[in-house]
Design a protein around this nucleic acid. Sequence first.
RNA 1: GUCCCCAUCGUCUAGCCUGGUCCAGGACAAGAGCUUUUCAAGCUCUCGACACCGGUUCAAAUCCGGUUGGGGACGCCA
Length: 437
Amino acid sequence: MIRVRFAPSPTGNLHIGGSRTALFNWLYARSKKGKFILRIEDTDTSRSEQKYMDEILDSLKWLGFDWDEVYYQSRRFDLYRKFGRRLLEEGKAYEEELFDENKQPKGKAIIFKVPAEKVKINDLIHGEIEFDTSVIKDQVLIKSDGTPAYNFACVVDDADMQITHVIRGDDHISNTPKQVILYKALGLALPEFAHLPLILGREGGRLSKRTGATAISDYRKMGYLPAALVNYLLLLSWSPGANRELIDIKEAIELFDIKDVNKTAATFDIAKLNWINNQYLKNMDAQELADRLIPLLIEKKYISADNFDRDYVISLVKLFQARLSTLNDFADWADFFFVEDIIPQEQAREKFLNQDFSREFRLFAERLAALEQFDVASIEQGFRQMVSELNIPAKTLIHPIRVVLTGKTIGPGLFEIIYYLGKERTKKRLMKWIKRS
RNA sequence: GUCCCCAUCGUCUAGCCUGGUCCAGGACAAGAGCUUUUCAAGCUCUCGACACCGGUUCAAAUCCGGUUGGGGACGCCA
């Protein structure tokens, strides 16, 4: 039985890198019908916080990574101390007193005597890696406050939880020899190791706030779909082959194998994430999409929670669906359907409202009012008839009208905009720009 | 500084293990055009890479060595 674990520390939010590690562990477990174990590494009691814990668990759930077992290291201190004492008794470790600034003793730490030897691991992704432990300093096992040090707790837990495959970031490669010698000292069986390449920021180097590494919860707030984010993460250092880009998680479970993960670090590219999110958004059922968008519209006070026309919102969603990169884009781009006071963007005004269209606007308003049927085709027909009578090209009027109605130079087709805005609102917005003579 | 990892278009990657089918394929981005109603949608096209040097071989992106470049780790943080 394959058993893998994801071991976050609640000293910060779940970031892109961590969620990719979680994803590959989860995928491997699901693809091999094994167990995915969550281990909360909350040994640093002063830095661990409940809010981070909640954020991490929420994010994992949101991404769809369900776990089979969960453990908290803070509840297992006795176990680590027991193993620490054992190494002490066997003469493989020693105690060292720690003093505070007044040279008063604070407590005794248990420190491992690192034996000098060559350690070879056979990494599932990197192949053979050899280390010389003579360059490694003696390692703290149990700190003077009684809490375990990272590498020790990690080894004790991985063995105790019968983890078969340790899948973690590349940045842990140098921890591996330290852990291997601990397994040997304790007489425990070694797991397999697989070190995933890191995800780098735009300018190379670690993903940071500056380079775009925000928390998973931030991507959620920005309007990305969990399935799209997972799809994007999947494409970093792994490929489904056959020139596939869009792949759902069920299919990924079938195709994934840890051996196919490549060794090269990948750069996080928000542009491709946007494209993938757009693909998921446009393939979504419009009603379902509308239901996801409605809370955002309520939040912006564009509609009221207890009284809104769902069908109308669905119609508007269909108008924008193919263009959305994120859920939030909708409220930004379709705002003119919900807000009455339209203030054109500066550039739009300069480009398309640089002359007086009073006569044309008034004429068009009259045409609209006179329309027997108010539907997209009739609106367009009325408009085209008018411009042909005025003997001007359609676009010389289409753009100014769009700017007056929406405040923007881009958007869906003008006649659809007018249809969904309705006669009255269209007229009102046109009239605002008609100068009294 | 010491140790470790990595190296195909700007970015993500296919190909590498099992040399020839690769003057290197796809996607994102970018640029151009079409769509004469805009584009942030759609369609078409273009640009663009095997880091470098040497070796092995009839043949190297693929195997080997070195150089350079990038990244990571060296906490009583995890």
